[in-house]
Design a binder for these strands. Structure first.
Lengths: 207, 207
DNA sequence: GTCTATACTTAGATAGAC
DNA sequence: GTCTATCTAAGTATAGAC
């Protein structure tokens, strides 16, 4: 019943990801990961060539998925509807299966991500998505709104006290993100150029 | 010219804080900190009893300042004006002198903060401020808006590409944070109870 | 207040048996 | 595919001279 597994590799990934997120990458030793799985350190080295390589294995997968999302998002219309659609897909990607776990690792290990090649790619993709979301207003205001919209999804995981179901959480994150997205390229003060061809927000249009 | 210093202690704090933020707490060794200052590891132990203690020294100071802010914020009116006032002070605290540095350390070392006693206090104070900001609407929506308002300040440091002055950055962060704060306890859809006695937002008041 | 020297522990990683 | 045994490097921390 030792089980020839074959999925030992993914069990290592799962345990490592969990511990890296909970305790931090540096604080988690290979010994600890091995013990949790009931194997020895040496066994880990059969499946991964280094500690870093474990990170690579699940981050790279995430980067690929985001690349597909980016490619798709670039084709969406540059208006409030397009932004909402893009963020909705991002949200689905985020809350899906291991998506959430990897992104939480991302949040909890910023300095690792910053210096790790695969981490830099992930970080880069995040910035790229924010960039696409603020195409209608690439000014600092647009950039910050887009970033906060993304962070609405991320933050919904730890900002909310009290019981709340996953779908409620998801809907709430989208609702507030949409408020931010709707303001991109809109300009309620009436100074700069308004975004052409966008009126998904009924309020504040009197001249 | 060796300088009897006397401020060696604060030089250690400054260098440590910078390296912890840039490379991460765990990745930064005491050897590295000592080398930067041109002293030996042992010298550090004269001023601090451990590596953790260095973190304590600058985080505790931050916690005290936030405690005063919290005490003050609790006295502010529970309306949009009170929230704006509170966040403005938070912003000033954040962008002031070492405030920004410590809070960046906080962002970059989440797992350290999570398991470090002083870090937990800092984290706790952040949550408390969000709680105060969402008093008018303690629902998940209010909580998330308040958290995003705070994050508008934090995020303004890394979300913005291109050159931008510190004051511009600060003003922008406040502007967008205020948009979020104004929606707390407001309810534009007209479902739940609206916040009593608040009309700092001129738009959308037709009944 | 800072140094040299060192004790103690643990980390990541490899070699080779089974 | 997993084990035992071991290497090498680096870490935090302490003792005691100056």
């Amino acid at each position: 019943m030792t089980g020839s597994t074959g999925d030992t590799r993914s069990r290592i990934q799962a345990v490592a990801l969990e511990l890296f997120t909970e305790q931090g990458y540096e604080k988690t030793s290979l010994r600890e990961i091995a013990e949790r799985l009931g194997v020895t350190k040496a066994a880990l080295y059969y499946h991964f060539k280094s500690k870093d390589d474990i990170v690579d294995s699940f981050v790279s997968d995430r980067v690929e998925r985001l690349d597909r999302l980016i490619e798709w998002a670039a084709e969406q219309p540059v208006d409030a509807v397009g932004r909402r659609t893009t963020l909705r897909r991002y949200c689905e990607e985020f809350f899906g299966d291991d998506g959430r776990n990897v992104m939480q690792f991302f949040e909890q290990n910023r300095t690792v991500v910053k210096h790790h090649p695969a981490g830099q790619m992930l970080r880069d993709r995040m910035l790229r998505i924010a960039e696409l979301l603020s195409r209608a207003d690439p000014s600092p205001a647009g950039q910050l709104r887009a970033t906060l919209a993304l962070f609405s999804v991320h933050g919904s995981l730890f900002a909310l006290r009290g019981e709340i179901s996953s779908t409620e959480r998801q809907e709430l994150a989208l609702e507030i993100a949409n408020e931010l997205l709707d303001r991109i390229g809109e300009d309620p003060t009436g100074n700069d150029e308004p975004e052409p061809g966008t009126d998904s927000t009924p309020a504040a249009a009197a001249g």
